[in-house]
């Protein structure tokens, strides 16, 4: 009950968004990722090993074919490198932080702080994702460039738009992860729901295989979902498979899904908090 009063009371202050606070949250979370060098090292090794297996499978699929569904074998290698590089930054294997906060009841103390809950979490995740991308992602891409060769975006415009798309993919994925974690407000078994969601996300965002390789019916089905915006779009921009005005369309779709999912996340959060208050959280 108190949480409710406080939250409404502080909403006014939160509206005058304290950008410095969010930057600080992001920075703190960014730095925290550098605390475990041993884990990072073994993580990289694991990542590289699985990546090598995936490259082998993809190249064996190509065989002697020079091109399949717009992908050359070199594209497929770059695709694998990118997905393995985004793995940690985009939390593609799952993310349960918010769930844990709700289930352990720590959320109540967080709500007492005078800032937007969603914004604060998003800032934290941005810091984490950026650190993971620099720490693991860039390392992995460098290794791929050395081992198999890597295709790079073309020109400053190509780099700029691809990075913008990567940012949108992170934001869209974050909103989805936040939304799934919101299940914790209703169910103590939200972890199981999460596992479902991550398995689905892995298949549908293009992590397991490039979406272009899937049958046409499956691709058009996925086109109606936000999942391609969470990674596949970025990969296609990076590889230069999208050009001209199509680039803007892809970015627009990514941005639109991000806004929709963030809106939904806000809605679910508000509902969830109300439920928490009724339950006496």
């Amino acid at each position: 009950m108190n949480a409710a009063l406080l939250r409404w009371g502080l909403l006014g202050q939160a509206a005058g968004i304290n950008a410095r606070l969010y930057c600080a949250a992001a920075r703190l979370s960014f730095r925290r990722q550098f605390a475990y060098p041993a884990a990072t090292f073994w993580g990289l090794l694991t990542n590289l090993f699985f990546g090598a297996l995936r490259v082998a499978v993809l190249l064996a699929l190509f065989g002697l074919k020079p091109q399949v569904a717009g992908y050359t074998p070199a594209d497929a290698v770059t695709y694998t490198g990118l997905t393995q590089a985004f793995l940690a930054a985009f939390s593609l294997f799952g993310w349960y932080d918010l769930m844990r906060t709700v289930h352990r009841g720590e959320i109540v103390t967080e709500l007492l702080r005078p800032h937007s809950f969603l914004g604060f979490w998003m800032a934290q995740d941005a810091g984490r994702a950026a650190a993971q991308f620099l720490l693991r992602g860039v390392t992995i891409l460098t290794l791929y460039a050395l081992l198999w060769g890597l295709k790079l975006p073309e020109g400053a415009a190509g780099w700029g738009l691809t990075l913008l798309s990567a940012g949108l993919a992170w934001a869209c994925g974050f909103a989805f992860r936040f939304l799934v974690n919101g299940a914790a407000f209703w169910s103590p078994d939200a972890v199981g729901i999460g596992r479902f969601a991550w398995a689905l996300m892995g298949l549908a965002c293009g992590f397991l295989m490039p979406l272009a390789f899937f049958p046409a019916w499956f691709q058009s089905l996925l086109a109606w979902t936000p999942f391609p915006s969470m990674m596949n779009s970025t990969v296609e921009l990076w590889l230069g498979h999208v050009s001209g005005t199509q680039v803007l369309r892809v970015l627009g779709v990514q941005a639109a899904w991000t806004l929709v999912l963030l809106g939904l996340a806000r809605l679910v959060l508000a509902r969830g908090l109300r439920r928490l208050e009724v339950a006496g959280g």
Binding site: L61, F62, K65, V68, G192, R195, A199, L208, P215
Partner: peptide
């Protein structure tokens, strides 16, 4: 914990299932 068990059991299968399904779905192209 019946619900948690059922969800976990289904999710466990889905994780493997998705991986193999991805392979099955792309193989015809190659």
């Amino acid at each position: 914990y019946r619900t948690a068990f059922a969800l976990d059991a289904l999710a466990a299968a889905l994780v493997t299932g998705a991986e193999f399904a991805a392979f099955v779905l792309v193989l015809p192209r190659f």
